[in-house]
């Protein structure tokens, strides 16, 4: 028995179907492995940052929680993965789980502080928590290496099978698999009723309560998940660079992340990856000329973007795409 799918169902399904652009996007990352063997380390860094930005997209883009301290979770994951190798846990996947656990627990616990207030106090509490951790890492020199960062991290074989090589081939594939895996999970969550309820909360809390959504529980939940993914991203960076810099916790990293998401587009799932790509390439290029130069243009970009660049790159592309079929109909 075949039935024609009614248009309202097709409309809902549009969000869920893997589009060609999406498939091409991930295949492109695979192609990088073969086509750009000299730039694998940099490409891995972009993926990791994109994953980190995705975690912010979940809590900011989808759930509407404003934060200035998301780097806290990235840093926690990074240090956890690094310190685990020091106590003998050198298998990377175990390291990821450790990082996820620590960052997630911290995210869960702090979510109660963060979610209490409104925007302003959320900003300040997240900022405060981020600075607090930075200061802690700075002071506990014996454990964290202080300003010099955590050095001498020896990472074992992935699952005991694949060794990290000098060219970053294994590292790249490892990062790609983990990023893609977490992306698929995040994507599934956001297209499920769960994701719909988050978008409802972001759109209008008052009404979300009135239709019976337990918003506290839901927000705690997604905040924790965002922390977990950020922690994993941090751990990936540690494992692939075998070093943890103290600025993993820095305000600049949280701010940069917001900017990337803004460039790419919030609540799009891909905005983080696209933004990270554009941001890191531009940063690489501009700051090789002059570091202050980069900061200046970044600032200008922010000022302009808040007024003119609504929706980011992805939003812009979607608008362009939406123009075409409408043109056909008319």
């Amino acid at each position: 028995m075949t039935m024609v799918t009614p248009p309202h169902i097709t409309h809902l399904a549009r969000r869920e179907r893997w589009s060609r652009a999406e498939i091409a996007f991930w295949l492109a990352w695979l192609a990088v492995y073969f086509l750009l063997p000299k730039h694998l380390m940099f490409a891995a860094q972009i993926l990791i940052t994109g994953l980190f930005a995705l975690s912010l997209d979940l809590i900011l883009g989808y759930a509407g929680i404003v934060t200035l301290g998301h780097a806290a979770f990235f840093g926690l994951g990074a240090y956890t993965a690094g310190l685990l190798t020091k106590v003998g846990v050198i298998e990377p996947v175990l390291g990821l789980f450790g990082a996820a656990l620590v960052a997630g627990t911290f995210g869960f616990l702090t979510s109660f502080l963060v979610l209490r207030g409104r925007d302003l106090s959320r900003l300040m509490i997240t900022l405060g928590i981020g600075l607090l951790l930075f200061e802690l890492a700075n002071r506990l020199t014996d454990i964290t290496g202080g300003v010099d960062g955590l050095q001498g991290i020896a990472v074992g074989k992935v699952l005991g099978l694949f060794e990290f090589d000098l060219f970053g081939k294994t590292a790249y594939l490892y990062v790609l698999v983990v990023s893609f895996g977490l992306f698929v999970v995040a994507r599934a969550l956001m297209t499920a009723p769960y994701g719909l309820s988050l978008r409802a909360i972001r759109d209008n809390q008052q009404r979300a309560v009135a239709i019976g959504i337990p918003i506290r529980v839901r927000l705690t939940n997604i905040y924790t998940l965002g922390a977990v993914i950020a922690g994993v991203a941090g751990a990936l960076l540690t494992q692939t660079t075998q070093f943890v810099a103290i600025d993993s916790f820095g305000f600049q990293r949280s701010a940069d992340l917001l900017i990337m998401l803004l460039i790419g587009g919030t609540a799009t799932l891909y905005g983080g990856f696209v933004g990270a790509c554009a941001f890191l390439i531009a940063q690489n290029w501009l700051s090789s000329i002059n570091a202050e130069y980069w900061l200046f243009w970044l600032g200008i970009l922010l000022i302009v973007a808040t007024r003119y660049l609504r929706g980011g790159v992805i939003g812009g592309m979607a608008k362009l795409a939406a123009l075409r079929p409408m043109g056909k109909k008319a």
């Binding site: 809902l12 399904a13 869920e16 999970v185 969550l189 499920a192 009723p193 769960y194 994701g195 719909l196």
Partner: peptide, 11 residues
């Protein structure tokens, strides 16, 4: 059903 399966499965 709530978290992982797409919304359109809730026909």
């Amino acid at each position: 059903d709530r978290r992982l399966f797409p919304l359109t499965r809730r026909r």
